[in-house]
Design a protein around this nucleic acid. Structure first.
Length: 393
DNA sequence: TCTGGGGTCCTAGGACCC
DNA sequence: TCTGGGGTCCTAGGACCC
């Protein structure tokens, strides 16, 4: 039986979802029809564009460009800020409709999923089924999607990236040569900026050239494992299954970019405190404990340093995570160099709840637990947890 | 023009063990 | 006295994705 995979991708997801929200709230303008963007904090000079409308894209305004730059290109650009709770609701509605077409669904991101349709078509034309899915999302939820159809996940995903918005495309094995090989290598999944540069410097510009390249030669350029994957993918081959179960998280992290570079240790510590609270809160919510803490800093020149340390036992206590972060910081920061960003992550996660006796014997632990409980409650009430004063724990 | 935030995977080198 | 080779784990850095 030949496999049939769909890849469904929401067109300019955050922008479309915001447009739907504005219309729902009685707004007159559909921001999808004018140059518009979603960005973090539009007043912050450092904020960048999270999503752009198609008219904005036509003016050369792309995701991840600074808002200030976009404003120079288009002074009357409509800028709206994001609403993550709303995006979550749109995403769930979208996924639910997709799931009704096949239970074999793999969520790839907040606005993309794969469906294994192999045993679901029952003789129907896949393009017709995809069109009915596309229409159903549009009629029910008010935003458009692209559907890519192929014999595997890679080709389905490549197909959904063809002409947008509100389109269905196929990319079957016999269409690879005509539809995919003429594209630049950068259009191939997993080929980013660096890999593109490397390939182009050896004269490999198109996916077709990559596909026909000698595997040994490619191995010398990008390494054994990656070479095999690129070579397969350029030839339209991908054996990976549509995986229904979402794998458990392996790490959690949070980072903050300052609106101005900071060098005062008090400011840096306050930022570290905030990200530690956030990360610890999130692992408690998901019932994890972590035994590895890592911190990272980004300097004015964009160089980054990272340092990780191991805890004697897994924890979800903010104070213990923060203490480790504070211990690590001097190893990557001299206390003077201005910093653009600080971040904190935890990994080596476990659901193990066994606690060692030493923790119970420490009278500070009870205080730490209580403090975390208060923090978690404040977050759940949607209160600004800053009301819990910043303190040296 | 001046570059966010949250993830995953891979690689290379060093430590340590047998 | 000086030496091998394999395996595993850890760490830092770099690539990619959305």
């Amino acid at each position: 039986m030949n496999r049939v995979v769909f890849h469904i991708d929401v067109n300019s997801a955050f922008l479309s979802w915001t447009a739907v929200k504005i219309l729902k709230e009685g707004g007159q303008q559909d921001i999808r029809s004018v140059p518009s963007v979603v960005s973090g904090d539009p007043s912050d000079r450092r904020s960048i564009i999270t999503a752009a409308s198609i008219p904005a894209k036509k003016l050369g305004i792309k995701t991840a460009t600074p808002v200030s730059m976009a404003l120079r290109k288009c002074p009357d650009l409509v800028i709206v800020s994001g609403d993550w709770e709303w995006y979550g609701r749109c995403s769930r509605g979208f996924i639910d409709i997709c799931r009704s077409y096949s239970p074999v669904l793999e969520q790839f991101s907040i606005d993309e999923c794969f469906l294994d349709m192999t045993f679901r078509l029952k003789g129907r034309d896949p393009v017709e089924v995809a069109n009915s899915l596309r229409e159903q999302v549009k009629q029910t939820l008010g935003f458009t999607v692209n559907v890519g159809i192929g014999p595997n996940k890679l080709l389905a995903k490549m197909a959904s990236d063809f002409e947008k918005p509100d389109k269905v495309h196929t990319l079957w094995a016999d269409q690879v040569e005509g539809k995919m090989w003429p594209l630049g290598v950068r259009d191939l999944l997993w080929v980013g900026k660096k890999t593109e540069e490397r390939l182009v410097s050896y004269g490999i510009r198109t996916i077709g050239q990559l596909a026909k390249l000698d595997l040994q030669h490619l191995t010398r350029l990008v390494g054994d494992k990656f070479a095999r994957q690129l070579h397969d993918n350029a030839n339209g081959l991908d054996g990976s299954p549509v995986v229904t179960d979402r794998p458990e998280a392996k790490s959690y992290s949070a980072e903050r970019t300052f609106s101005k570079d900071l060098s005062d240790p008090k400011d840096i510590d306050r930022a570290l405190f905030k990200v530690a609270c956030l990360v610890a809160h999130r692992i408690r919510k998901d019932k994890f404990r972590a035994s590895c803490v890592s911190i990272f800093v980004k300097r004015t020149d964009f160089t980054v340093s990272q340092k990780q340390g191991t805890l004697s036992q897994p924890t979800d206590i903010t104070a213990l995570i923060l203490n480790e972060a504070r211990r690590l910081l001097p190893e990557i920061w001299d206390g003077e160099t201005p910093l653009r960003q600080v971040g904190l992550g935890v990994s080596r996660l476990t659901h193990d709840t066994a606690e060692q006796m030493t923790l119970f014997e420490d009278p500070k632990m009870e205080y730490y637990r209580k403090w975390d409980e208060e923090y978690d409650k404040a977050r759940e009430r949607n209160e600004d947890p800053r009301t819990l004063a910043y303190k040296k724990q």
